[in-house]
Amino acid sequence: MSIKYAILGILAERDLHGYELKTNFDDKVGEFWSLNFGQIYSTLDRLEKDGLVTHDRQAQDKRPDRKIFSITKKGRIILTQWLSTPISKVRALRDEFFIKLVFMDKDNPAAVLDLIEKQKMLHLKHMNRLTRRKVALKSKICNRDTLPTELLLDAGLFHAEADIKWLTLCETKIKTEIKRKE
């Protein structure tokens, strides 16, 4: 759904052909969102149908022509509209780990705690990776605008941190429950 707007956003900067669009997308948000060419082309098709994007054909030597995509006036209006509207839907609590918790064996809290621990470590490793990427990003001298990427990395870190904190709370509450039962 928001792939549509991402593509519109990229095309708003300049006209691109399909491959360029993919690399550009990867550069900006690839950290969290990986797309294949198929998804990109199907989205572009839909956008053209809606009259938000048009294309020109560019002739190439030895190869077939390639399409250069550009955003239409209507497309820009739609994009601006989208950009200025906050997201009304809060992230859904549809965590897979939560489902696991529900179905864990109530009589074996040790196993639950073990799982939580492992999960926390996974998150921590993930955060470490994100941080390293961020450090690398910061230290790289780069003329491109890296801020959105950095912000995305931060978002990832904050979410992971929230998960770790929540897991720690789970751990504490379960432990208190065990103590209470004893």
Partner: peptide, 23 residues
């Protein structure tokens, strides 16, 4: 703070006065 810890090249977690994990 996990965000802070993530800067380390190695993370040791302590639990009740004893190292629990060493990543």
């Amino acid at each position: 703070d996990p965000k802070a810890a993530a800067y380390g090249s190695r993370i040791v977690t302590l639990k009740d006065g004893h190292p629990a994990q060493d990543i």
